[in-house]
Design a protein around this nucleic acid. Structure first.
Lengths: 243, 243
DNA sequence: GCAAAAGTGTTGTCTTTACACCCATGG
DNA sequence: CCATGGGTGTAAAGACAACACTTTTGC
């Protein structure tokens, strides 16, 4: 490391940005907030904010998550660091390095941003990547480099549910095998065989723990309820069908 | 995002740290440099340095890599972002956020640090985690939180060679199947069956391309030479034996 | 010839897939 | 009764592990 000479190195602002994903109505959705001030005023962006002087990065991410959604890292949601973005031109105001975090959460009541529900929404990830749109700013590209960050977060989620039990983070505390399967189908954008899926997830030790209860909230024959087991790594992994 | 108010947020120093891994003499080794000034003066640390005003993070990592080792990101080496470390107490001088990068490189001539070979060395990763040692500072823990960063980098390398073709980044431009197998054995710390390994890597399309040449540099029957193929993801993945 | 490393063949076992079939509920 | 989703059985195809065996070099 070079000698310490603060004057030789300009200060950076450090922020956290959040890719908050959930599954609603059989679609993978991301949380976006409307920007209230320039630059990119009125455009949609990922939630985020500055890291405070006494905070670790993960603390800052958890704080921003609570502020923007009311979601606590408890309640089954999963928070992990995603990647860091530091292009010198990524923010026109000054040099900002953003440490992006990924949150996987169960479907929530309507999000709020500072209490203002109109300035926060869940949007299917496909629409957030779409270029043009009817209403101005509704389908405009995300602010800053947030489309890239979102794409990286979605890709991380897609690959991580293959070999870890994180898909359960998208589910409520108790869920059925069918509900878990619909999570995989929404995140991967594929159809899975319900019979083989059932055998596989119930046969992987530590993935699912039966609670004893059943539900018919999906219709049809009553389904067993499960909660997430202790295992974090799936062996063998869930296999994403060929493209 | 909160309103822009620089005075409310203290400046951060942003650095890049490098986990540079290679395989030498059948062991996974990491590059470490001796610190010339406090804090942790005389202790071993990961190479790294401050990000400059006009640099992207990956540019800063490539520059530091070239300065510390003479290695260019060409020449088959692989560079990727690893993770970012921002504990408020990680550097006693000031608030430093470090964006760690992972480099996988073929075995090199002796590294240099500013031309001084005594202050840079390859060390088997096991010895860098060892707590005590004969010579003071030789086996002392790494400076700052670098032991943690190194552990994360090693774990990333171990898992990534399972499902990607990155193990070839540890090899010279032309290599034999046996040499590639010894990379896997060193990184994973296991013994692999040479017969099954050969069948598997040569049967995975896009992983290896025969160059037509052969070599006997490992002794025994001449072995075909290969170079890395275009595939980056291995399907099916290489399987790490059970522990 | 002998040691060493490269490479091929074979066999039993496990995993995955595709799909036939039955089960239990709501309406 | 029927539609809907839940769940089990089974057989063909494929992947993997273990290991016998042959090939081609250096010494």
């Amino acid at each position: 490391m070079s000698p310490y000479d603060p004057s030789a190195f300009p200060p950076f602002a450090v922020t956290v940005d959040l890719v908050v994903l959930t599954v609603r109505e059989h679609a993978l959705c991301a949380l976006s907030v409307r920007r209230g001030e320039p630059p990119y005023q009125g455009r949609w962006a990922l939630p985020g904010g500055f890291v405070r002087a006494d905070e670790d990065l993960s603390q800052a991410a958890a704080r921003e998550l609570a502020e923007e959604t009311g979601l606590r890292a408890q309640s089954g949601a999963h928070l992990e660091q995603l990647a860091t973005y530091g292009d010198p031109q990524r923010d026109p105001r000054m040099r900002v390095v953003s440490v992006a975090h990924l949150v996987l959460a169960p479907d929530l009541p309507a999000p709020r941003a500072g209490g203002d529900a109109r300035s926060a929404r869940w949007a299917p990830v496909g629409t957030l990547f779409a270029e043009g749109g009817q209403e101005p700013a509704e389908a405009a590209p995300l602010a800053f480099d947030h489309a890239r960050i979102l794409a990286d977060g979605v890709e991380r989620a897609r690959s991580k549910i293959e070999y870890s039990s994180l898909a359960t983070a998208f589910c409520p505390p108790e869920f059925t095998v069918g509900e878990l399967r619909r999570v995989y189908e929404a995140v991967w954008g594929v159809a899975l065989d319900p019979r083989n899926f059932h055998r596989k997830v119930t046969g992987t030790v530590g993935f699912l723990v039966p609670t004893g209860g059943t539900t018919t909230r999906q219709g049809g024959r009553p389904a067993q309820l499960f909660r997430a087991g202790g295992a974090t790594l799936l062996n063998p992994p869930m296999l994403r069908p060929e493209v």
